[in-house]
């Protein structure tokens, strides 16, 4: 169910195992309805997310990329999300030099208990990407 109405876009999410992946689970358990564009990749920590993963996704077909980790000070690995924050902030500022609207990329912090917040994050980001439309001229998916 995409409440944005138009055709689905491709959004890739990198979620840390301990907080945000759990938050997305919590949202599921609470049946908090969300748009369906997002595809989730589980990583141990947001600090594991190489900015190049984001670039790779955006260059090869994704219309948006979302990264979510534990709240600052609450990282399962003490400080992984601090590294993530620096790297991803740098990446956000670089994207425009690649001709990619920085609004196609978002990083945030959602804890394992914040199911409702996760619903909000997904809904808002999906809406934001839909406002920009597709990034690539996609060929119809070959069957």
């Amino acid at each position: 169910m995409s409440d944005v109405g138009t055709k689905e876009l491709r959004i890739v999410g990198f979620l840390c195992n301990w907080c945000s992946y759990g938050g997305a689970d919590t949202a599921g358990v609470g049946r908090f309805k969300q748009p369906t564009d997002l595809r989730i990749i589980r990583v141990p920590c947001s600090g594991r997310v190489d900015p190049l993963f984001v670039v790779r996704a955006l260059l090869t077909g994704a219309d948006g990329v979302l990264v979510s980790g534990c709240h600052p000070r609450d990282c399962h690995y003490s400080e992984g999300n601090y590294y993530a924050r620096r790297r991803l902030e740098m990446l956000r500022r670089l994207l425009q030099f690649m001709g990619i609207d920085e609004k196609r990329f978002h990083y945030t912090w959602v804890s394992a208990s914040e199911g409702q917040k996760w619903q909000q994050v997904v809904t808002d980001f999906t809406k934001q990407v839909h406002e920009l439309g597709p990034l690539h001229d996609k060929k119809e998916k070959a069957d």
Binding site: R48, F53, T60
Partner: peptide, 29 residues
């Protein structure tokens, strides 16, 4: 502890977090 911060730091991909290597995650992408 297996966080993988080192893997995304390494400039030449020499240190890889097992089970979450660059290749494994990029294959998902």
């Amino acid at each position: 502890a297996g966080c993988g911060v080192c893997t995304s730091t390494c400039p030449c991909g020499a240190i890889q977090l097992q089970h979450f290597t660059d290749n494994q995650l990029l294959s998902e992408v």
